[in-house]
Amino acid sequence: MNGWILAATVGLGGGGAAALWGVTTGSPGRRVIAQNLTTSAVCPALLLLSQGYGRPAYVDLALLMALLGPVGTLVFARLLADDLADERPSAWGLTWAAAGLAAAVVIALCVAGGPGRAMVKLLVIGALLIGGNVIASRALAGGFREVRGG
């Protein structure tokens, strides 16, 4: 029984279910926030799975997720700017909670992995993930005001 995979399962189940429920119901603003938080739920799970399976090559998946997840949210924030204009969706509590979760996972993996180039790679992924998450939330909360969706 591998603790890392268990943690990944719990994170994935909880985060995934919440994101799915959030993205299918509620106002457009809440759906886009749920889409943004999917990245923060799936990326730490991928990191934990990479550690659990003992395959450092899987870290590239988490790297791509941390890099392109927020870009997907920027796409929605910009092209749905008209629909979100009046609502200004912002869930800063959730964003900082997700950032805290991501930081905790990255630190735990760094401690488990020990110093070295792999640890720096984990820190780069953590920085990309948390930075992307915060910027995507900022973009949703009115980053694209005068864009008229274009």
């Binding site: 995934g16 799915l20 993205v23 299918t24 889409q35 999917t38 799936v42 799975l49």
Partner: peptide
């Protein structure tokens, strides 16, 4: 538009 949002979440979960 809403289907695109769900597809984005589906993509992430499929990758996992």
């Amino acid at each position: 538009a809403r289907q695109a949002l769900v597809l984005s979440v589906l993509g992430a979960v499929l990758a996992v």
